Computed example of a mutant assay.
Amino acid sequence: MDVLSSRILVRPKDHEASLAFYRDTLGLAIYYEFPGGTVFFLGQGFLEIVGGGDRGPSPDVNLWLQVRDLDAALRELAAKGLQPDREARVEPWGLYEAWLSDPDGHKIFLVEIPSGHPLRTDLR
């Protein structure tokens, strides 16, 4: 299998609330819009908000968003009225993380990879 692109699809209960959250609150850049859906850039992937759903989030599926500066990202979100579900802290595995939820309750991990962490090591 030769995967050329990927995206995560979210079918929110309230399409407009989720669209506003990802577009206006998180400030994700729009990649593509079509009737009934919007696709956002997520670094090396995409997030598609499409249609509507009725089941809500699964605790088994989360969004992991790496940011350059977590404290700055949290200040930016606070200025828009969004407080994290869990404040930023360094996890036992060395990542600096804060947790958010979208309007439907999908968990979002905002992650900063500190210098010196193995994920920042150039293995070439």
Rank of each mutant, 00 (worst) to 15 (best):
M1D: 02
M1Y: 02
M1C: 05
V3I: 14
L4R: 13
S5C: 08
S6W: 05
R7H: 15
L9K: 01
L9S: 04
R11M: 09
H15T: 00
H15M: 02
E16S: 13
E16P: 01
S18G: 08
F21I: 00
Y22N: 09
T25R: 09
L28V: 09
E33C: 05
F34S: 11
G37T: 00
V39P: 04
F40M: 03
F41N: 15
F41M: 14
F41L: 14
L42I: 05
G43R: 09
G45T: 12
F46K: 10
G52L: 05
G53C: 10
N62K: 13
N62I: 07
L63R: 08
W64S: 14
L65N: 11
V67E: 05
D69M: 03
D69A: 06
D69K: 00
R75K: 15
E76F: 06
E76T: 07
E76M: 10
L77R: 13
L77K: 12
L77D: 12
A78P: 12
A79P: 07
K80S: 07
L82N: 06
A88E: 02
A88Q: 03
E91N: 12
E91I: 02
E91R: 15
E91S: 13
P92E: 08
P92R: 10
G94C: 09
L95M: 14
E97Q: 14
A98G: 07
W99C: 09
D104I: 04
G105M: 06
H106R: 02
K107M: 06
L110D: 00
I113D: 00
P114N: 05
P114A: 03
G116C: 06
G116K: 02
H117F: 10
H117A: 09
H117K: 05
P118A: 08
P118S: 10
L119P: 10
R120T: 10
D122C: 04
D122M: 09
